[in-house]
Write a protein that binds this DNA or RNA. Structure first.
Lengths: 147, 147
DNA sequence: CTTTATGCAAAGCCTTTGCATATCT
DNA sequence: AGATATGCAAAGGCTTTGCATAAAG
């Protein structure tokens, strides 16, 4: 699922703003993150293609793209990560040990949300939940060390 | 549930460290947060009782209390919040509109975690999940405005 | 041609750190 | 006395902002 399939220029112009090379390059960099990219990673990728682009432009562009709902942000370990907005809400499993991340669909959590709404009258609005824990590989190592 | 019921001084000394007025005041300030307190709120409360206590001491003390598992921290909207460690893992529902927070037990989410472990081999280790959404009152307002 | 976007540099904010002093056991 | 904890001030890292210039429609 590439971001190429979306008419970003059109959606930006539809709001009365302009498409620029910088915005395109930042969008590409976010997309290259495969789901979750830090500012540093984005800046590094941007810098490869266009060393002249300023860091503050990257910040401003990401802010801008979020307002148009083309990019979404999430907090992970206190760091902000960015990714291309997808039609499907989804979540992440982040391994505390190896740092690996697994993307999961919303299905697993939907039932839980419904239950919370029913019990607390609270409408959970989560597009981008990050659950921490230990992945399969690291669990195996942990089990060895604990013995 | 007050933190008074726990022998903090004892637990601190058991690790070879010292109980000090500063640490006691910071602990009180965290406890006064009723579940989730920002650094600023903690510093404000500390300052009321003892204006001389330095901000860096508060940072160091919180770091210290976390290492002893007397205080736990979580990220909420990019801000670090602190609370007294409880025996029971629990989570928060944070309303995006009014900022209200509801504390919920782990029970609602346990089944979901089990399912994730089964399906992905990923062991979710969440002591302090924060779910964003809209509380009952704000949902009612939203419904009105949307019509 | 007008408005929006960018680059640069500087300011801001929050957090951490080094070091001398004070405090606890 | 010996070790730990604190206060102060300064440094650090990341993000935001003001302003002049450049570029898009």
């Amino acid at each position: 699922m590439s971001h190429q399939s979306i008419d970003y220029a059109g959606r930006i112009r539809a709001h009365g703003y302009r498409m620029t090379p910088q915005r395109e390059i930042v969008l590409d960099a976010v997309c290259a993150g495969e789901g979750h990219t830090t500012i540093d990673a984005i800046c590094a990728r941007v810098h490869e293609r266009a060393p002249v682009i300023n860091r503050s432009t990257v910040y401003r562009t990401l802010e801008f793209l979020q307002q148009l709902n083309l990019v979404v942000a999430a907090d992970i370990h206190g760091q902000t990560i960015y990714e291309i907005a997808q039609a499907q809400p989804h979540h992440h499993l982040a391994c505390l040990q190896c740092g690996d991340e697994i993307e999961i669909s919303n299905d697993e959590l939907e039932a839980t949300y419904a239950e919370i709404t029913e019990r607390y009258g609270f409408d959970v609005e989560v597009d981008h939940l990050v659950l921490y824990g230990f992945c399969q590989g690291c669990r195996a190592h942990k089990a060895q060390n604990d013995s």
